[in-house]
Amino acid sequence: MTTTWVFAEVGAEGKVEPGALELLTKARSMDGDVAAVVLGPGATEAATQLGEFGATTVYASDDPVYSDHVAQPVTEALYQLQQQHSPDLILFSMTYDSRDIAGRLSAKTGSPVMSNVTDILGPDKARTAIFGGTTLVDVELQGSPILLVVRPKSFAAEASGGQANVVPVEVQIPETALKAVRVERHEETATGPKLEDAAVIIAGGRGLQEADNFKLLDELAAAIGGAAVGATRAVVDAGWVPYSMQIGQTGKTVKPGVYIAVGISGATQHIVGMKGAKKIIAINKDEDAPIFQIADLGIVGDALKILPQVTEEVKARKG
């Protein structure tokens, strides 16, 4: 029988990172035991929700040591818990912190870590996608515990209404694990809908020519109502818009009802983050742009001309 653990990140208010709930839902559908590990302020509070999504045991600690320091204290605690309980599989959501923790844990346990996982096929078999999602790669892993870092939105989260037995985590964290200290947190609380939840996303790329033209996307988003604005890495790296707007391999994974790609070429690393959209519209002046290969509607033309027209038309229709 397989014992699967899900490592759940938590915010200070007990808010569980959504990917953990997706992973619990998947873990529940596999044969065997499901437990969650949650560390840092808010952990105990989060245990209720983790139980509702399928964890029968939740190992929890509210100790701020886990959020004040980067990666190492959590790795140490996970390692000690793993040594005591020997899970077969530990699932991580592909976030900044969890990817680091999984990487470090791999060195400690000597067992393999696979990242960019998009499906779990069995206790020692997982799937990833390459070449912009056109080819699926099935990988077999050997070792214990097997560590999988799973892309967000690979599974739909669904509560089962269960209740978890909460086990307090008490481990000794060595001084050497406390060197990297978070001294400040700057988080933009975005106004409007989040990219992860929006029904419509309008994303801009280098084809918008300059940072200022992103306002054309904001205007359309406002006209549609409830739409969010995203971006490619090229324009984030150029400093036009904040990183929190980046969609793709190193950014967010989104699944809106409609995705409007404006001045975006359609590089594989962008496509992996948005190809789950129900419908895709692309506006690009180059008829050979790869984005057209996955678009339901493609308009070959100048985005700077077309965008204001769409905004006007949408406003007119809405009256």
């Binding site: 409609v258 519209i281 033309g301 077309i306 229709r317």
Partner: peptide
């Protein structure tokens, strides 16, 4: 899907799709 050249009605087509 359908890829069309903008002849001035690109905006309308996008809106109709939405």
């Amino acid at each position: 899907g359908e890829v069309v050249r903008d002849d001035g009605d690109g905006g309308r087509r996008v809106t109709a799709f939405l």
